[in-house]
Design a protein around this nucleic acid. Structure first.
Ligand SMILES: [Zn+2]
Ligand SMILES: [Zn+2]
Ligand SMILES: [Zn+2]
Ligand SMILES: [Zn+2]
Lengths: 146, 146
DNA sequence: CTTGAAGCTATAGTTGCTAGAGACATTAGC
DNA sequence: GCTAATGTCTCTAGCAACTATAGCTTCAAG
């Protein structure tokens, strides 16, 4: 049996994050020691590692919740799991396309600026006027998460 | 003079977002009509469009705050503005690299799964074991070991 | 047996908004 | 002029997915 700090270190997840996962029902309530401290076994560690890995791959906690409940029923067909993975792939491809456009725009900005006064700064100028951009990088969506 | 809904439509920013920007000091407090409604002029519209464009390019509000205060001093050198843009470019490139690895991993997962039971699902299997991955796609910030 | 690290609960903060409630202002049609 | 529809006002709360703090209790090493 491992303490919360130990599985945290093993799975690469911070202690408060593990408690958070338990709080939102992603991890089952852990058993407790005589002194009320959480104790985990091998199954809990595997589950936590699964969550961590899926988070690393950009899945939302909601998607992970579904994946976990699927993986708890090994006899079911895996179509649903594959669909979640394909949706995540599509999402990653969307972000990739957007970031590629952003990169081009930012490169143009920094390359075109000759340095000098703010009044002549190409960065400031372009930021103030999208028509100076070379691509249509609009269409706002999550650009921040992973 | 434009109402909040009008500049919102012109700049492509939702009304509550404009009020939020004012609240956090990104936009100056707007003048008011006799009936206490916000009124905006051309300068405010330009400032809002600047913010919107910078957001579209992925800048944080904190970076935008700095860019705005720089652009308010046109005689200053633009080194600081260029540095912010280059930092943003670096950030975009970092995300791009990570998303590219993620895309490869997700593609591998969905391609390798033959369909069938969850017990044999490659998606579930790989999510449970990072050593089955072909790249090191892990999130850098989350990993800080002593 | 003491001390310091690790654990506990509970609350609040982060970022960049978005949604809702309930009251007031403005405008269009009649 | 009047009414109805829309627009705007303030305020609060909520989203994801944690992270940080405060003030305790418990555990393990020396
Ligand atoms: Zn410049
Ligand atoms: Zn642009
Ligand atoms: Zn499968
Ligand atoms: Zn992996």
């Amino acid at each position: 049996m491992l303490t919360i700090g130990k599985i945290g270190a093993q799975a690469g997840v911070k202690v408060p994050t593990i408690r958070y996962y338990e709080q939102i029902g992603l991890l089952p309530e852990a058993g407790r020691s005589a002194g009320n401290q959480r104790l985990y076994g091998r199954k809990a560690l595997e589950r936590l590692a699964f969550i961590r890995h899926a988070r690393d791959l950009g899945f939302t906690l909601e998607a992970i919740r579904d994946l976990l409940s699927l993986s708890d029923n090994p006899e079911q067909p895996c179509v649903a799991a594959d669909a979640i993975a394909r949706a995540q792939l599509a999402e990653v491809e969307r972000r990739l396309a957007r970031l590629t456009a952003l990169k081009a725009e930012l490169e143009r900005m920094v390359v075109q600026c000759a340095g000098g006064k703010i009044a002549d700064c190409r960065v400031i100028e372009v930021l103030g006027d999208h028509s100076l951009c070379s691509t249509d990088h609009r269409h706002p969506e999550s650009e921040s998460s992973p």
